[in-house]
């Protein structure tokens, strides 16, 4: 920890320290080298944002895809709207930081949310284990991409109601299965909203389809395993379809599926 960080008020430092742990960035967040900015096309009025020190920022969960307001650092008076990413010097990975609300309390500080882009840590648990299906649906309604948030919440609520009505005393959708599904959507915000249904064991089954020869479906098992099915055209034999299915874990399923071109029809 640097001298500069020690000079921060304790609460502010703890908030900063806590955020990366919550989202499973490196515990040694002090080692992260820098932030870089990636302003959105229409919302940025500061384009030459200086590199800032992580200690100077607050973090908090936020909605992915929201326009964002952030300040550079306490007391600098510089504020901008845009997207921000952390470049991790140690890991060599880029993490999106999705800022939320502007906090003005004497000095200008800002809140951020951190979401991973394109990959997931195996042990990621962004939603507490003990949460109910209703809590997770609320989480979906406040954090997932706006373009399908309403539709997804509606569908999940419908599924939960159906299961509870058909199975007296049932808690409904498998909580762990739903958690893993939401984790995937959070890690891959460019995915389209899938067709959603429930398996006989009340697990989430998500499916992205485009015709009968472009299918990508994932069965989210409660233990973090997934079973998947991919149908895709055979590029060298136009009338034929390649079909495969298998088992993986939720954190690697996209890296397995992407080489098969599923994002051509499963993403925006």
């Amino acid at each position: 920890m640097t001298e500069e960080a020690r000079e921060q008020p304790l609460g502010r430092y703890l908030a900063t320290k806590k955020a990366p742990a919550t989202y499973e960035l490196s515990e040694n967040f002090e080692d992260e080298q820098s932030f870089r900015t990636a302003p959105t096309s229409s919302a940025s009025w500061v384009t030459n944002l200086p590199m800032v020190n992580p200690y100077q920022l607050y973090f908090q969960a936020a909605a992915v895809g929201y326009p964002c307001v952030y300040a550079v650092a306490p007391g600098t008076g510089k504020t901008c709207i845009g997207n921000l990413a952390i470049t991790s010097g140690r890991l060599g990975k880029t993490f999106d930081i999705l800022p939320t609300t502007l906090v003005t309390s004497g000095t200008l500080v800002t809140q951020f949310a951190i979401a991973r882009s394109g990959s997931m840590a195996t042990q990621q648990q962004p939603i507490a284990d003990e949460r109910s299906v209703e809590d997770i649906i609320w989480h979906v309604g406040t954090t997932l991409p706006l373009r399908y948030r309403v539709r997804l919440v509606s569908r999940l609520s419908e599924l939960q109601k159906v299961v509870q009505e058909e199975e007296f005393g049932s808690h409904g959708i498998s909580v762990r299965s739903l958690q893993h599904f939401v984790e995937l959507l959070e890690a891959y915000p460019r995915l389209r909203c899938p067709a959603l249904s429930l398996t006989p064991d009340r697990n989430i089954y998500a499916s992205w389809k485009s015709g009968s020869d472009r299918v990508f479906s994932i069965h989210f098992l409660p233990d973090g395993e997934v079973r998947f099915v991919i149908f895709r055209p055979n590029d060298k034999h136009p009338r034929r379809t390649i079909r495969l299915s298998g088992t993986a874990t939720v954190d690697v399923i996209m890296s397995i599926a992407e080489p098969h071109g599923v994002l051509d029809w499963a993403s925006e």
Binding site: E158, L159, T199, Y205
Partner: peptide, 16 residues
């Protein structure tokens, strides 16, 4: 059942 149907489309889960 409705947990295997979305917008009138019958999904694969209906046959699991």
């Amino acid at each position: 059942n409705p947990a295997t149907v979305e917008n009138g489309e019958i999904l694969a889960t209906a046959f699991m």
